[in-house]
Each structure stands twice: as C-alpha cells, then as structure tokens.
C-alpha cells in the first residue's frame, strides 16, 4: 500500500526535515568527535593541541566519570523499582471497573507531574525540603521526627533527588502499565476470574505476560531518561553537596560550562552517545518490528 514516486517528489517531501536534522543533530556530533581528539580549553586556547585518544583515556580512568556513572546507576536502581511497584498498584486500581469519574480525575492528576517543567521540580524541592521553612520537615515534626537537613547533607540530598524522580515519573510508569493491562483480552481475564478469586494469581499468570512489553519499554526509557537527567538535580543542588548528586549529565555540564574543557566534555559526550545508540537500537528492535 505505498506509492512509487520519482526522486524529485521524494526530495521535496523528505529533504527539508532530513537536512534540518542533519544540521542540528549530526553536524554538532561530528564537531564533538573532532574536538574530542584535542586538548581544547576555552580559558587556555593558546595551549590547544591534538592529543589523540588522551581525552577518552582521561574519561575512562577518571574517578569523576565512574563516580557520576555509579550515582546515575544508583539513582536508577533505587528509584525505578519503586516507580514500577507503585505504578503497577496505581495501574491495577485504575484498571478495575467502576468509579469512572474518580478514575478520570485521577488520570488527569497523573498527567501533571510528568508535564511539569523539570527545572521547576528542582525549585519545588528547594522550597519544600528546606530544613527550617520547608513543609517536609513540618510533616516530619507531626510524626515526631526532628528537622532533617535534606538539601545540605550528601546522603539526604541523594534521597531527595530519588524522591522527586519518583514523584515525577511514577505516573508515567503507571500510565504505561495501564496501557499494557488494556491489551489483556477481556474474555481471557474474565475466564481467569471465574477460575480463581485471587487477584494475585490473575496478575501473575494472566496479566503479567501481557505486561512484559510495557515493563521493558519502561526500563529502557527510564534508563535513557536517567542518563539524560540534568534539570532537576541541577536546580535542586547544582550536583552537590560535594558531588553527591552529580549525575552523568550534570558532570558533563560542569566540565564544559564551568571548567571550560570542551575537548574533555566532547569525549564524555561521545561515550554517552554510544551508550544511547545501543539503548535506542534495543528499543527499536523490540518495539518497531511491524514497521514496513
């Protein structure tokens, strides 16, 4: 069901967007590859020189890179399982029949966190988690916990980032899993419910097989988005205290924008890109099988 067209027509339709995306998406990458072979610091331009693979060696042997990667992995390991657990509960509740009005309202409420400007989430964290004036510590006080320095303490600041990541992305996970639940054929689910009264057995043996694609999509997209995560920790803590919340994107920003070492930042960026492309390939091979 497709039309054969001549070259000129094809070029007229596709040319502009391909050209635009090459210009803004690929040309800068080529520039980054080129600069990644140089010592190139904006504050020491006279000392610029070709250094081959030294920048890559610096990245792969530097504590800063592996530290940031470790923190990024740690964030993923702590936040995503909680997002999936809570998200699955929310999806199961929303999937039950009845209470249509309440459920429509809940679905609208779920859309709000994930659309919120990520930088604003960082500001909210600053205000709500302040040791003295923050509402979090007020609430801790109600249950008899002394005020906690959340933003200023390395461990607590990390937990703070985990909390806001959960706040912002649990709704996304919930809605993706809800979409997965609707792929279970109703007659199969009904038949299973006649067999057993246990919701757990229905979930484990009937719904879970249909949820696998959604879960895989969640895992891959959350991995990509955790690697991208910049705005929220940056506005919340600037990567601190110390480097407690310096995730990989924040580290690259610091090297490029605050140490002005463009060559080293470029080498970081290319390594990130390689990881990203692998992720994207996996995602594509799993989810776009039917694309002609």
């Amino acid at each position: 069901m497709s039309t054969r067209v001549n070259r000129r027509t094809l070029l007229a339709f596709l040319g502009p967007s391909v050209f635009a995306l090459l210009a803004v998406g690929v040309v800068p990458l080529a520039y980054a590859v080129w600069k990644s072979f140089y010592y190139f610091n904006l504050t020491k331009l006279s000392r610029s020189e070709f250094i081959g693979l030294d920048n890559y060696a610096t990245v792969l042997t530097s504590g800063a890179f592996w530290g940031a990667m470790g923190r990024t992995a740690m964030l993923f390991i702590t936040a995503v399982p909680i997002q999936i657990a809570i998200g699955l509960c929310i999806a199961l509740v929303l999937h039950r029949p009845g209470l249509t009005l309440f459920k429509t309202l809940t679905r609208l409420a779920l859309v709000l966190p994930m659309a919120t400007t990520y930088a604003v989430v960082g500001l909210l964290a600053q205000v709500m988690m302040n040791q003295k004036y923050g509402v979090f510590n007020q609430m801790f006080g109600w249950i008899g916990i002394d005020p906690i320095n959340i933003i200023g303490d390395p461990t607590n600041a990390f937990i703070g980032v985990v909390f806001w990541d959960i706040w912002q992305w649990t709704p996304f996970v919930a809605l993706v899993l809800l979409a997965g639940l609707t792929t279970v054929p109703p007659e199969i689910e009904e038949a299973a419910r006649l067999e057993t009264k246990s919701n757990w057995i229905v979930l484990r043996h009937v719904q879970l097989p249909f949820l696998i694609p959604s879960l895989v999509a969640v895992l891959i997209l959350r991995t990509a988005d955790t690697l991208k995560l910049f705005d929220m920790p940056f506005t919340m803590t600037r990567g601190g205290p110390g480097n407690a919340t310096e995730f990989i994107a924040v580290l690259i920003e610091r090297i490029g924008n605050r140490q002005f070492d463009i060559g080293l930042a470029a080498a970081h960026a290319i390594i990130m890109l390689a990881i990203t492309v692998v992720l994207a390939r996996i995602y594509i091979s799993l989810f776009y099988k039917d694309v002609r």
Partner: peptide, 18 residues
C-alpha cells in the same frame, strides 16, 4: 526515533562552539 534517546548534553557544547 533514535533522537528520542540522545541527551541534550551530548549536543550542547559542540553547538555552543558553533
């Protein structure tokens, strides 16, 4: 579709220079 996965931080500095 791959563009969905690329982090802005990858492009930011080359673009800054350009």
């Amino acid at each position: 579709i791959t563009n969905r996965f690329v982090s802005p931080v990858v492009l930011a500095f080359p673009v800054f220079m350009i």
